[in-house]
Amino acid sequence: MFNQLKTAVSMTLILTLITGFIYPMLVTVLAQTFFPSQASGSLIIKNKNISGSKLIGQNFTSDKYFHSRPSESNYDGTKSGGSNLGPTSKKLIDKIISTAKGLEKENPNISPPADLITASGSGLDPHISIAGAEFQIPRVAIARGISEGALHKLVVEHIEKRQFGILGELRVNVLTLNLALDNFYSK
């Protein structure tokens, strides 16, 4: 029995060293060497200031920007997660309907697409659907005093395609779209 225990303990220690230290450290070193930007969180650095990560959604409230999806955590990076409300939850139904009604005022011509009125799973979804971007064009156009056609063109340029033509859904990264807005048209 003592021999068994000795084997079990030393096996635990050795395998811990291999899988818990050598393996992640090796991956870290190689990742930082070959893909330093991705390995450090795909950060966007502007004038020595970190303005976010291109993978992580941000909260936009100004009319001059395209808005992200509703977020359960209000885009707090330390509290990722969804609402977890079920399909018969009164709270969920009320929340979605009131968000939809609020958005209808902004663009009475079309009804808001589903992604703009529902909270994402992560609370940090960086994307909206193409319809979600198109829906917001009139508001941004008025706030910035630029033509809807120009915005439409910008949105089309920022569409992320399905990977290999099949994986995932068509989408627009809100943060990179807004950064492009600021670049092309001064604030």
Binding site: G41, D76, L175
Partner: peptide, 28 residues
């Protein structure tokens, strides 16, 4: 390695404090 290439972070750095476009602090 494929995951890192596609954007999954791999480091031992502290959480990043970013100043968002609208000037709010976001911890990554």
């Amino acid at each position: 390695m494929i995951f890192v290439f596609e954007g999954i972070p791999q480091n031992l750095k502290p959480y990043v404090h970013a100043r968002t476009i609208e000037g709010k602090i976001q911890i990554l």
